[in-house]
Simulated assay, not measured.
Amino acid sequence: MSISYQRWVGRKQTSNFREAAALETDTIDVSKLKGDEVVLKIHYAGVNASDVNFVAGRYDPTAKPPFYPGFEAVGVVTHVGPEAKRFRVGAAAAASGYGFFSEYAVISEKRLIPVPSPDPEVIPLLVGGLTASLALQYTGEMKSGQKVLVTAAAGGTGHFAVQFAKLAGNHVIGTCSSDDKVEFLKKMGCDRVINYKKENLAQVLKKEYPKGVDIVYESVGGETYETCVNALATHGKLIIIGFVSGYKDQSGWVEGKGKPGAPLVAKLLAKSASVRGFFLNHFDRHFKEHMGRMVQLVKEKKLISQVDNTATFRGLESVPEAIDHMYQGKNVGKVVVAISSPQAKL
């Protein structure tokens, strides 16, 4: 028996997703599943800012097309291989990796996470939630009683960083771009929300936090990054989880001309501060523990896994529109695409 399905495939290296990728048809011969492989019918897939970096080949300079984008999914197991033991047909499961902008995926059951049901609210936990949880604990070494600044705080990972920082007993500052997001972040627990369209971020930080902030969870880049470095307290830590302002035009991957490095180094040196990068895949040994913790917090209603409801995206063909929506800064929470669920509720 074979399953015919569609998936997005990147054939050209460019950060313009519409130019890089196209919908293609493929087949899965379920009689040839090996070992613990299973077939996952994907109900929902998540959109990430780094989707455009992936099809541009930025994460691995030696990589060449084809690329299979889509980093996270939740769905139902439809077929199992001869050695699969953990999952049965009909079981709900989530997964993170590559190739999930697709109607189906073949995957080792070891990489699947059991979930009660294939709901869209699972998606934000897989990349955004794990990134926030792991980065703040291991890279930021977050403690209680600190001042934590989260940029793009209403986004897919930012809203988790706000909540984790607050749960740890910290004063949380969040940046965003609209009044709706201001209200959302207040509900998430932000002590101070800065709408940078109405307030000058650098001025607010200098005036209200003259001694600086202890941790910055930074995903914007560009001028925001420079402002955050200036706002660091003595022994402060800035965690770079991304630099979305330089993704689409790829400027973030190119060394700027005529930009001396000494001033930034001097600022860090003067404060014994540090800038630390975080890449989720380097912490995979901690995924199970942190995922379990987040699921429990959601059950206890202590953590909100926010799916963006400012727009609805259904079907694989809507993936480019969903990516554009996120880059336009319209989303509040995680952008999710309903792939093949007949009960899709977004």
Rank of each mutant, 00 (worst) to 15 (best):
L268I: 13
N200K: 08
V265Y: 15
E183F: 01
K181T: 01
K299T: 04
E223S: 06
T227R: 12
L201F: 11
G222H: 08
G169T: 02
N281S: 12
A231P: 14
D179H: 01
T175P: 11
G212N: 12
T234E: 13
E183Y: 01
G236A: 11
K267S: 11
F279A: 11
E183G: 00
S272E: 10
G277D: 05
I173S: 03
L205N: 13
I173Q: 01
P260A: 07
G236R: 10
N195M: 03
W253L: 03
F278V: 01
I194V: 15
L297W: 04
A165C: 13
V193F: 04
L268H: 13
G261N: 11
T224A: 12
Y247N: 10
P260C: 00
A266S: 09
V193M: 00
T227H: 14
I194Q: 14
R276W: 08
V275M: 13
V275N: 08
Q203L: 14
L205I: 12
I240K: 00
F243L: 08
W253N: 05
M294R: 11
Y196H: 14
I241L: 11
S274K: 06
K299D: 13
Q203G: 12
K259E: 13
R293S: 07
D191E: 10
L167E: 08
L297H: 05
Y225K: 04
V172D: 06
E300S: 01
F164H: 04
K206F: 07
V295S: 00
H286R: 09
V298Q: 05
G174V: 08
C228P: 11
E218W: 13
G261C: 04
